[in-house]
Design a protein around this nucleic acid. Structure first.
Lengths: 194, 194
DNA sequence: GCGTCGAACTTTAGGGCTGAAGTCTTCGAG
DNA sequence: CTCGAAGACTTCAGCCCTAAAGTTCGACGC
């Protein structure tokens, strides 16, 4: 880290030489070094958010893998369960909630139906529409995933007191409110993060 | 959950009928309804984190698109700039930092070199190694992206006082520390989120 | 009724990513 | 000095997603 380059030092730092992933502190320091007009406080929040989410996704990925499903499939199960009652949604609605295109949902549902996680049938009253419904098997898988997820999440917040958890939740919710008002549309590609 | 269809009641809760994306509060409520053993406080933090990150990625995606680069390319530029000084890293190291496979980096570098954002050359002292170096054009693009990003980030945190920003940063950093200690390896696939 | 518009999903082409196999170079043991 | 092993990247096959057409129905207007 802190690769100090002195003028008279032809030691061209060979890449991939013990570079090692920078810590958050180092990253902030690097930002300040490379971009003066930067509020370190803001950057700390943003960078921490991004790194945190990346780690969480890795953790969730491991969990769903052990259950024999993909993270993508878990998202669909989640949306269906959270829709409540008969656990039914159309492909278009699912696509909107997950932030991907209808075409992607079509294929995803294909796979999940083949695995017995959901069923796909046409709406009787409107044959253009399709109804995706959670199967018992699918609900079972969601439950199993939830059980693993809650263990991880509880562990993640372990160092925080109840008051701190509450506070953190409040602050994040306020941030969320601000973005959701700014871009009311649910859609949008989700790409990678740092 | 027998979906009773009464004759005079075509009011079949047709899916995709005004379902509309649930708010965070509704989502938490749904979780409690469907999964009893759940700490709503924990779930609020986790769900807010996930939704927040998704929105942020959408926003970043729009910004990089206006600059004519992809979010993926921005990540590479970021890693190179943050590495400091001569702005050089090997493909393997880059892959590790971005959390993707070396194969993916090879292709990404292909594209970016074709666009003049980076150069790719073999290391003189060790011909197995490859050096990816940021070009002036690449640095310029990174700067432009940073300028847009900081505006968005500042706006995101607008409702928070300085004290609150500091507090939020601290809390997030503590969470991050916990996960990074738990899974020291940087790697891991990054899939999608909710 | 009938034609057109529009909505909801599916199909198709192309790009990016993963995992596994392949290539080239360096290093160490005999 | 030569051979085997390990390391760093690249190539290849296959999967999933996006964007842009299709396809199929339902809703209106005349």
């Amino acid at each position: 880290m802190a690769r100090v380059i002195l003028p008279g030092m032809p030691e061209t730092p060979t890449p991939s030489e013990s570079a090692s992933e920078p810590t958050l502190e180092e990253q902030i320091a690097a930002y300040q070094r490379e971009f003066r007009d930067l509020d370190p406080q803001v950057e700390q929040v943003v960078s921490a958010l991004q790194r945190l989410n990346r780690r969480m996704n890795v953790a969730y990925g491991r969990q769903t893998t052990t259950l024999g499903i993909s993270n993508a499939e878990w998202e669909v199960l989640k949306a269906l369960v959270l829709s409540g009652a008969p656990y039914r949604l159309g492909p278009g609605e699912l696509a909107k909630r997950l932030g991907l295109t209808p075409a992607a949902m079509t294929h995803r549902i294909d796979r999940m139906a083949a695995e017995g996680l959901v069923t796909r049938e046409r709406d009787e009253n409107n044959r253009v529409r399709v109804i995706v419904e959670l199967t018992d098997e699918g609900r079972e898988q969601w439950l199993a995933a939830m059980r693993l997820a809650t263990v991880f999440e509880e562990d993640l917040l372990q160092d925080l007191s109840t008051a701190e958890r509450h506070l953190l939740g409040e602050l994040l919710t306020r941030l969320l409110r601000r973005v959701e008002e700014a871009q009311p549309d649910a859609g949008g590609r989700l790409t990678d993060l740092d």
